[in-house]
Design a protein around this nucleic acid. Structure first.
Lengths: 96, 96
DNA sequence: ACAATAGGCAAGCAGTCACTTGCATGTCAA
DNA sequence: TTGACATGCAAGTGACTGCTTGCCTATTGT
């Protein structure tokens, strides 16, 4: 499994996660369209596809294939590694 | 303030955070030595210095100058942005 | 079958990044 | 003051990354 931190390093990939967080089970074309419309990100289909590959390898996005469609779903579980690696200590107020 | 995600993207920078998480107020030379000894990271002083610059710009490391020493301290507060951007939802089990 | 749709693969290119190298600044002890 | 120590600055280099380009495969509708 690839590097989750490196996967998060790119702003377009974070926008993809934002979009999938709002709406699950989107296809590549849906993600592309919505990135352009709502997130002001103008990336080609191939570019977004490559970004999704990285997110998938990091375990942040899961894919279900159905016919000629590929539905993408966010998985926030791997993000916990970050919070658990450097937990807030003592006086710094903790998570909600 | 620079990109916290990009700051975390490099494994050496994460090792620096690990080290500072274990022990606060370390100088550059201390960090270099401990990175080599305990984390198996062999980076030059200049390389580590540049990494620390990135961490500092991301707000993850704070610096106190005293005489000819610079003491570095981790600040985990900016990490909360990540957990708050894509909070775990519904059935996915939450943090401890 | 045929065209249209959704996606996949891979080479090439330009920009960025981490690292090195070499020298400069500032502080402390003797 | 002088040398040793801790750090700072900046140019150059090789590798990596994100993106494009061009073509290919698979599925669906008519």
């Amino acid at each position: 499994m690839a590097d989750i931190y490196r996967a998060l390093a790119d702003p377009t990939r974070r926008a993809v996660l934002d979009e999938l967080y709002e709406r699950d089970r989107q296809t590549l074309f849906e993600i592309c369209g919505r990135l352009t419309m709502k997130h002001g990100v103008a990336s080609s289909r191939q570019a977004v596809s490559q970004h999704i590959d990285v997110l998938e390898e990091a375990g942040l996005v899961r894919v279900e294939r159905e016919g000629r469609y590929r539905f993408h779903t966010i998985d926030t579980a791997p993000l916990r590694e970050i919070a658990e690696r450097w937990p807030a200590r003592g006086r710094e107020d903790g998570p909600t």
